[in-house]
Structures are given as C-alpha cells and as structure tokens.
C-alpha cells in the first residue's frame, strides 16, 4: 500500500441513466492535506466526491466503471461493505443536516449503529461526545444543553456538529460538499479554521464554488470541466500559473 496516496482513482466513469457525468477520471488524492474540487456547476465535482463513499448508488440508475482505491482496496468491489466504507469516509453536506434528535444523540448516532449496544456504557459514550465536541470547539457552547434538539443550534453550530458526529467513528477521510455555503462570513472563517486543524488527522476533500475559499483553505486543487479533470496541482501553482488555458479563464471568473 502506498501511504502517500489516500484516494486513488483510475479511469473512473459514471453514468446517470444515459448521461455520462464522469469521463475517464484518474486522480491521486494525498493524505494529510486539503484538496479542493473546483469547477462550474454541473462539471461533476459533487458526483466525484459522492463516489468516494458510494452514496450515489442509492439512486437506482447510477452505473460506474473503473477503480477507486482507498486503503489499498477497490471500494467498488463486491466484497466491500458500504457501512464499513462510510465509517472510514465521513461526509459533510452543503446544508447542515443534524438529525432531529438531541445534540448528544447526534454525536453518538454513528457509534451506536456500528457497535452492539451491550458494548456501549454511559461512560464510553459521554467521553466520546466530549472528545468529539471539543475537537470541533463546540463543547464550551453546548455542554449545558446536550439534551436539547440539534436543530435548535445556529447554522454554524449545526455544521460543526455534523463534523463532530463523524469523529467517533475514527474516519480516515472527510468529504465535504460546499460545507460553508450556508454560513455567514464569521462562520465560514471559523469552519475553515476548523478544517485546517482537522487536516492533520484526516484526508480532506472539499467541493467549493468559492474561488477565494479554495485559494485560502486548500493545499491542492482539482479543476474539473464537463465531467473531466482538467488540472490538478498545488493551490499556489493552480492560481499563480495555471497550466491549462481553461483553468486560467475559470479562476479569473471569465465563465462558470
């Protein structure tokens, strides 16, 4: 296993019915950094992101070919359990989607669905909740209202909670689909700060529409267009001296 590659995509194609959304995508995503997926709407970046934890396949008409290797295993193989896969590849969605239960229950929802209840004592759970909430710096805000409904938190707190609830499962990869688009400027800043801290422990792949955010918050960028990868390089290079003409046009805001 090559430990300098976290997600290894080889010649990956994806169809929604007759429409081919991804064309021969090959890319290597490195661990311990933040990789941004950028490109105009409909270019396939969210589809690619959602392929990494196979959450697209719930929709009956999705067909794929190619390989996506995570932890040395092609996740499209028959013998992969999607439950185990998703435990290792957490996902944060565009709009914060805490479950309509208490803050506490939200954080332990993952462990509870992966562990027989006989192995989960109060102490273990309490500790997991505190650790996870501290890690996203939400503990001080919510420690007195762990029993209140998660949907009553502010959007920023909700999004932090959505990140926190992945952590007890000890994922390797966190996938983020425009995690800041529902937040205000201060919220964006704090979530970006948080993502920056998380990258020491996790591989982070983030879809974003916000060029400034991609530039600020990510180490590498992948520019996609019409279901193909046009350019993949370090953020500084991609924004400083794009190799491809279309990349340059896009980041300057001339289309998309």
């Amino acid at each position: 296993m090559n430990s300098s590659i976290s997600i290894d995509v080889r010649d990956f194609n994806l169809w929604y019915g007759d429409f081919q959304a991804l064309h021969h995508v090959s890319v290597e995503i490195k661990p311990g950094i933040i990789t941004s997926l950028i490109g105009p709407s409909g270019c396939g970046k969210t589809t690619l992101l959602r392929s990494f934890n196979r959450i697209n396949e719930r929709y009956g008409n999705v067909r794929t070919t190619g390989r996506i290797t995570i932890l040395g295993k092609n996740i499209l193989d028959e013998d992969v359990s999607v439950a185990s896969l998703r435990k290792r590849t957490g996902m944060v969605f565009q709009r914060p989607n805490p479950l309509p239960i208490s803050v506490y229950e939200n954080v332990i929802f993952g462990i509870k669905s992966h562990t027989p209840s006989s192995q989960l004592g109060r102490r273990v759970l309490d500790e997991a909740v505190e650790t996870a909430l501290r890690e996203v710096s939400l503990w001080e805000d919510v420690k007195d209202r762990l029993k209140s409904r998660a949907t009553e938190l502010t959007l920023e707190q909700q999004q932090k909670l959505c990140i926190a609830r992945l952590l007890p499962l000890k994922p390797d990869i966190i996938l983020m689909d425009e995690p800041c688009s529902a937040l205000d400027a201060a919220g964006i800043e704090r979530i970006e700060e948080l993502i920056g801290e998380l990258k020491r422990t996790f591989t982070i792949v983030m879809v974003t529409h916000n060029m400034a955010q991609a530039r600020r918050a990510s180490d590498e960028c992948i520019f996609m267009l019409m279901g193909e990868i046009i350019e993949h390089s370090a953020t500084v290079e991609l924004f400083g001296s794009p190799k491809h003409e279309k990349t340059g046009m896009y980041i300057e805001g001339r289309y998309g």
Binding site: K73, V80, H114, T115
Partner: peptide
C-alpha cells in the same frame, strides 16, 4: 492481494 479494510464486521452481518 490486500486484506479487505472494508469487510463487513460480525455486527454488520447481524444487522444486515
């Protein structure tokens, strides 16, 4: 051939 990091655990098989 690598060992499968995403093999279903016993608990997952029971849930299934």
């Amino acid at each position: 051939e690598m060992s499968n990091p995403f093999a279903p655990t016993a608990y997952e098989r029971r849930k299934a």
